[in-house]
């Protein structure tokens, strides 16, 4: 079963996250479990691969909102950076970012599935 301790060691700021969910730990954990399967991860990867930076930005931005809300800090930091790059339509190789994001997403998924 997923615990706050596990998320803390992942680097999340669970204290604020839980507060934001009206102090309901159970709601917070339930919402965190929904993150790894969030469609925006896939949309981000696919639109970058198709060089559709607009769509990629949309996906990154949506993802950012969710991650910020739940205080999943390490993932948030990466997504904030990539969102800013995409907003400015920076032409660059995003694969490094995608890889890092995917690693953390997988890590979170593993924790969630325990």
């Amino acid at each position: 079963m997923l615990t706050l301790d596990q998320l803390d060691s992942f680097g999340a700021n669970t204290k604020t996250g839980v507060q934001r969910c009206a102090n309901k730990e159970e709601l917070y954990l339930r919402l965190v479990k929904m993150v790894p399967t969030n469609a925006s991860f896939k949309a981000l990867e696919e639109s970058i691969n198709h060089n559709d930076l607009d769509k990629a930005f949309q996906a990154a931005h949506a993802l950012k909102g969710v991650l910020l809300s739940l205080e999943l800090t390490p993932l948030t930091e990466l997504v904030v950076e990539i969102t800013d790059l995409l907003r400015n339509k920076t032409m660059m190789d995003y694969s490094n970012y995608l890889e890092k994001i995917e690693t953390l997403r997988k890590k979170l998924e593993d924790i969630c599935n325990n």
Binding site: R20, L27, M34, G65
Partner: peptide, 16 residues
């Protein structure tokens, strides 16, 4: 709001 996680948070907070 389209994002279900944000929906859930807002719903929980506001429904008080």
């Amino acid at each position: 709001e389209d994002e279900i996680i944000n929906q859930e948070i807002l719903k929980e907070v506001l429904s008080v």
